[in-house]
């Protein structure tokens, strides 16, 4: 687990960018991304086009691995351990068991302890995060609502996770059992949080980041790194925006730098109002 979590430690204060092609991947690396996430379509397109969203074809992932020197992650469907086996055999550096793809199992997530490759999983609240960790996830990302360019859900999920962590640190030993019951999570993990005041694995943020200020916001709210999906390649001018988001993540607590990097980026991706969504991706996962 130390080796799996170790790579997540190395990605901290960095930006992981969704890419569909090798060309996207090169733009991401040129901008300073710490890793790229290979997927078949960016979430905004999955949302628009519908249909079943699956793991990327292996040859696309291989072309992305060839194109960059930084780590390559890829998404597998929730519960689809065979997709994960394919991705591990292919040699990706991290697997995202992701709600952005169409789930393959309505009750079970992948038993991630069975794999050598580390996994990241999404969570909307602390209970979900701890259930994923108990299944072997080596990194948690708050889910947000992918493909919307709307940061409100990412903020809601981050605040829910970090808020409950803070509350658990002041609970007494008897109350920890009640927390475990309410969170539907193992009491041993709840105790670990009570002692450490943080998740036992790194906490990153995903879903809705479209601007440098969005990246700063979630970092200031306790995220340790940022995933950007549609926000880059659905914007007017991806390369400068990608670089600006990277600089904003490194300097998230320096408003003067945030101002500087926020200038001259053109239009951000068009955002979506949550009330108008037909599908809430964040509700996938159990």
């Amino acid at each position: 687990m130390r080796v799996k979590r170790g790579l997540a430690e190395m990605l901290k204060r960095g930006v992981i960018m969704d890419v569909v092609t090798a060309e996207h991947a090169r733009i991401a690396e040129d901008a300073g991304a710490v890793a790229v996430m290979a997927l078949e379509r960016v979430p905004a397109d999955i949302r628009r086009d519908g249909g079943v969203a699956r793991m990327s074809p292996p040859e696309i992932i291989e072309s992305i691995v060839e194109a960059v020197t930084i780590p390559v992650m890829a998404k597998a469907r929730i519960g689809h351990f065979a997709e994960a086996q394919v991705l591990e055999a292919l040699g990706v550096d991290y697997i995202d068991e992701s709600e952005v793809l169409t789930p393959a199992d309505e009750a079970h997530h992948i038993d991630k302890w069975q794999f050598t490759v580390p996994f990241v999983c999404g969570a909307t609240n602390l209970g979900e995060a701890l259930r994923r960790i108990s299944e072997g996830a080596a990194m948690i990302r708050s889910k947000g609502e992918a493909g919307t360019g709307n940061i409100i859900e990412a903020v809601r999920h981050l605040r829910s996770i970090t808020g409950d962590i803070r509350r658990i640190t002041v609970a007494d030993s008897a109350e920890l059992y009640d927390w475990a019951k309410r969170l539907q999570a193992p009491v041993a993990l709840v105790r670990e949080i009570a002692e450490a005041g943080r998740l036992p694995v790194p906490l990153f943020c995903a879903g809705g980041v479209a601007t440098p200020a969005d990246a700063s916001l979630v970092m200031q709210l306790g995220a340790e790194a940022v995933f950007v999906g549609s926000g880059i390649f659905k914007s007017d001018n991806p390369a400068p925006r990608a670089k600006a988001v990277v600089e904003a993540t490194t300097n998230f607590d320096d408003p003067a730098i945030l101002l500087k990097v926020s200038r001259g980026l053109g239009e951000a991706m068009p955002g979506l109002e949550l009330g108008n969504l037909e599908t809430r991706l964040a509700e996938r996962g159990w």
């Binding site: 430690e9 190395m10 990605l11 901290k12 204060r13 960095g14 690396e29 300073g32 991304a33 710490v34 890793a35 020197t69 930084i70 780590p71 990277v246 600089e247 490194t250 300097n251 730098i257």
Partner: peptide
């Protein structure tokens, strides 16, 4: 520290 050397290198320039 450890991290991605390419990113750290670019951020040294940026900062």
């Amino acid at each position: 520290p450890g991290g991605e050397s390419t990113t750290i290198s670019m951020m040294l320039d940026a900062n």
